[in-house]
Design a protein around this nucleic acid. Structure first.
Length: 404
RNA sequence: GCUGGGGUAGUGAAGCGGUCAAACACAUCUGACUGUAAAUCAGACGGCUCAGCCUUCGGGGGUUCGAAUCCCUCCCCCAGCACCA
């Protein structure tokens, strides 16, 4: 399979300035992909793009991975309805470190160059930037962009000059990387099309050369029709302090039948043969949920490592399988404690509230009345029960508290 | 600044002097069925020391036996007009 075939089959083809996607199958090129440090971690949305980038690398293209230290200082206004609060410099530093660490984790064993656009922006003078770069941007084109129109139009919330200028910064990135690394392709999310285009034009105008953009698709949850990777708690993060490894694993395990094959293609590196086998399994034995299990394990392994993936798999088996809580040894309890909230002894209602699993004592009473609370596999009928010995409290099917 | 329309629980939205902790829909949670899925059905959905009590309907003040509902005042949003340019 060629790269273009691979991308097409997996559903990574979205929009590109390349005349045909088979251009990718010719000689190796250098491309870049960037993430802004708007948080100290990537989300599964970023992960989809990262997986796409991996295929580019695996097929021999050279990757430049960018952390947007400069762009993050301004904030991308595209798709936002109002001006964003500036991040403090310390926060940006911290976020940059987080993103860079994730690059290294996801792309472990791969060849790539890590860059930070702050490095080439910090010494640029304003006047020089306006002369060399600003001069090549047409105000009409900038104003024509949809999000600019909605921000400055009637009912819009306005836009600052700083945010308005964001795409010049991103455009210059591409030019810079073209000059320094001969990067001729920018990979980005679907929402970055407009911003990315500015770099292509700059390179054409200033270098007289062709450069291109490849955007990946926005991943949609086919059942809800909403952006994939959102739960009621917000985004699903790659950083385990923001989304625990257990929750991360559960997120994938709970993938619905209609979407699971799509997610396997996007988020795992499994072969076409294997994925097609799983697709068949979904059809013939959906209840076995083999596709979900493999998806959850593979993605967790990729992001958190095989050891942690196996640990949460084991924990999940205990929580949902036949295994008895009483049979767990201390080591297993420690592992469990990393993944679900742990409390020391106390009254059931207070433990549930303290861990945020129930919002009030009222809520606990209602849950108990409806038979939703179990302690070590037995339903309880009284909210005053004291729990002193190591136990597992379960609310409904998916929420647990470890008491030890 | 003027005129008109609004601000009600997570969201949308009824209510317009007592029967209002507040209809209905969505979201959420739980139960049943299942596969830790979806769909469907049922229940819950302000708090508490829970047959009762307490705190809520933008903020504050008032009228009244009684206010989400009436009056005053302040704040905020929307539409239109004016001012500015």
């Amino acid at each position: 399979m060629t790269l273009s075939e691979e991308l097409q089959w997996r559903g990574f083809v979205n929009q590109t300035t390349l005349p045909t996607i088979t251009e990718l199958d010719k000689q190796p090129i250098t491309f870049y992909w960037g993430v802004d440090p708007s948080a100290d971690s990537m989300t599964v949305g970023n992960l989809a793009m990262a997986m796409m980038v991996r295929h580019f690398i695996d097929y021999g293209h050279k990757a430049v991975l960018l952390v947007g230290g400069a762009t993050g200082m301004i904030g991308d206004p595209d798709g936002k309805v109002e001006e964003r609060q500036l991040k403090s410099l310390e926060e940006i530093e911290k976020n940059k470190a987080g993103i860079a660490a994730e690059y290294k984790r996801i792309f472990v064993g791969e060849r790539f160059t890590l860059v930070d656009n702050y490095d080439w922006f910090k010494d640029i003078g304003y006047l020089h930037f306006l002369r060399d770069i600003g001069k090549h941007f047409s105000m009409t084109q900038l104003l024509d962009r949809d999000f600019v129109q909605s921000r400055i139009g009637r009912g819009g919330k306005g836009i600052s000059y700083a945010e308005f200028s964001y795409s010049l910064i991103q455009g210059y990135d591409f030019l810079h990387l073209f000059r320094q690394y001969h990067a001729t392709l920018q990979i980005a999310g679907a929402d970055q099309w407009g911003n990315s285009l500015s770099g292509v034009e700059l390179i054409r105008k200033l270098e007289g050369q062709e450069a291109h953009i490849w955007t990946g698709p926005l991943i949609i949850n086919t059942t809800t029709g909403k952006k994939f990777g959102k739960t009621e708690d917000g985004a699903v993060w790659l950083n385990e302090y923001k989304t625990s490894v257990y929750k991360f694993y559960q997120f994938w395990l709970n993938a619905d039948d209609t979407g699971v094959v799509h997610y396997l293609k996007i988020y795992t590196l499994l072969s076409r043969q294997e994925i097609e086998r799983l697709e068949q399994a979904v059809k013939t034995n959906a209840g076995g949920r083999e596709a979900q299990k493999i998806l959850a394990f593979e993605v967790t392994k990729l992001v958190h490592g095989e050891r942690r993936a196996k640990a949460v798999q084991h924990v999940s088996d205990v929580l949902f399988g036949k295994g008895k809580f009483e049979d767990l040894d201390k080591e297993a309890l420690d592992e469990l404690g990393k993944e679900i909230p742990s409390m020391s002894s106390g009254r059931v209602d207070e433990l549930l509230i303290a861990t945020g699993i129930a919002s009030s004592k009222n809520a606990v009473r209602r849950l108990i009345a409806s038979g939703a609370i179990e302690v070590n596999g037995k339903k309880i009928t009284n909210d005053m029960v004291m729990i002193t010995s190591p136990s597992l409290i379960k609310k409904g099917k998916n929420s647990f508290v470890l008491v030890r």
